[in-house]
C-alpha cells in the first residue's frame, strides 16, 4: 500500500497541475486576508452590525479565527479539484491501463488515491496556515490585540480547517470516480461549489417562508459546502446546527463517495 501511495504522490509531483492550483490557493489568501482583516477591525470597533455580524461571531476570537483561516473558501475548491484530477487524469491521459496493470487490485488503487489525497490536503492546509499565521499574528499584534492564538476558538478553527482540507480532497477523488470525464467533473464540481450554495440557500429560504419555520434552514447543512461552513462556525442557534453536525455530514459524503468510487472502479471495463 505504501508503494501505491508513493506512486500517487509521485504522479502529482511530476505534473504541473498542483502548481497552478497552489498559485490559485495563494491568490485566494491574498484576496481574502485584507477583507478578513477589515472585518476584524470593523467588528472590534463595535460596528459589527454594519457588516451583518452578531453575537459570538462579532467577538475578537471569532474574528481572529476567521482571519487565521483566510483563503479557505477557494482553497477548499482547489483541493477538491486536485482530488478530481487525480482520478480523471487517468482516463483523460489514458494512464488507467498502466495503473491497473501495475496494480490489478483496484480497491487498493482507489484507497491509495484517497490516502494520497488527504496527505495533499494536509500539505495545503499546512502551507496556507503558516502564511495565515504569519500575516495574522503580525496584523493582530500591530493592532494591539496580541496574537489571540491562546484562544481555544482560534485553535479549534485551525484544526477544523485541517479537517476541511483533508475531507474536500477526498471528496474530490470520490467525485472523479463518479464522473470520469475530466471536463465534465471539473465543471460540475466547480459550479456546484461556487453557485450551488447560493441556489441552495435561496431554495431553503423560500421553503422556510412557505412553511413559516426558521428551523428548516438548519437542513441546509446537508449541502456539502454549507456543512463545511457550519463546521467552522462557532455557536449554535435556531437556524444554525452545531459544528459537529457539519463534520458528520462531510465525513458522510466523503465515505459514501469513496465507497461508491471503489465499487464503480472495480466493475468498470478499461477499454
Amino acid at each position: 500500500m505504501s508503494n501505491l501511495v508513493r506512486s500517487e504522490l509521485l504522479k502529482i509531483r511530476t505534473t504541473s497541475t498542483w502548481w497552478w492550483l497552489a498559485i490559485g490557493a495563494f491568490l485566494s489568501i491574498a484576496m481574502a486576508f485584507p477583507l478578513n482583516a477589515w472585518l476584524f477591525n470593523t467588528a472590534v470597533e463595535g460596528n459589527a452590525e454594519d457588516v451583518g455580524l452578531t453575537g459570538d461571531a462579532a467577538s475578537a476570537p471569532a474574528q481572529a479565527a476567521n482571519l487565521y483561516t483566510s483563503g479557505q473558501y477557494l482553497g477548499l475548491m482547489f483541493v477538491m479539484l486536485i482530488g478530481i484530477l487525480m482520478v480523471t487524469n487517468e482516463f483523460f491521459h489514458q494512464t488507467a491501463t498502466t495503473t491497473f496493470l501495475a496494480t490489478p487490485r483496484r480497491t487498493a488503487v482507489i484507497v491509495s488515491k484517497l490516502i494520497a489525497a488527504s496527505l495533499l490536503g494536509f500539505v495545503f492546509w499546512l502551507v496556507t496556515t503558516v502564511i495565515d499565521l504569519g500575516a495574522g499574528a503580525i496584523f493582530l499584534t500591530l493592532n494591539d490585540h496580541g496574537t489571540l492564538l491562546g484562544e481555544w476558538e482560534v485553535q479549534r478553527a485551525l484544526l477544523l480547517n485541517l479537517m476541511a482540507y483533508a475531507i474536500w480532497t477526498v471528496l474530490g477523488v470520490g467525485i472523479g470516480t463518479l464522473i470520469t470525464n475530466q471536463l465534465g467533473a471539473v465543471i460540475t464540481a466547480s459550479v456546484l461549489y461556487l453557485i450551488g450554495t447560493q441556489v441552495v440557500s435561496v431554495l431553503f429560504f423560500m421553503l422556510s417562508s412557505w412553511l413559516d419555520s426558521l428551523a428548516v434552514l438548519k437542513w441546509q447543512v446537508l449541502w456539502p459546502a454549507v456543512a463545511s461552513q457550519v463546521m467552522i462556525t462557532p455557536g449554535e442557534n435556531e437556524m444554525l446546527p452545531a459544528w459537529w453536525v457539519g463534520v458528520l455530514v462531510l465525513i458522510g459524503y466523503a465515505l459514501v463517495s469513496g465507497i461508491i468510487g471503489v465499487l464503480l472502479t472495480r466493475r468498470r471495463d478499461i477499454s
Binding site: N3, S7, Q94, T95, T97, T98
Partner: peptide, 28 residues
C-alpha cells in the same frame, strides 16, 4: 507480465523517465 496496449498512454505533461518511475513505484 509486461504489456503494451493500444490506448495506453502517458500523461502529456510528464517526462518519459517520470512516467516509468511512477509505474516502478506502484509495482515496488
Amino acid at each position: 507480465v509486461g504489456a503494451v496496449l493500444e490506448a495506453s498512454s502517458a500523461h502529456k505533461g510528464r517526462t518519459g523517465i517520470n512516467h516509468l518511475r511512477v509505474i516502478s513505484a506502484a509495482a515496488g
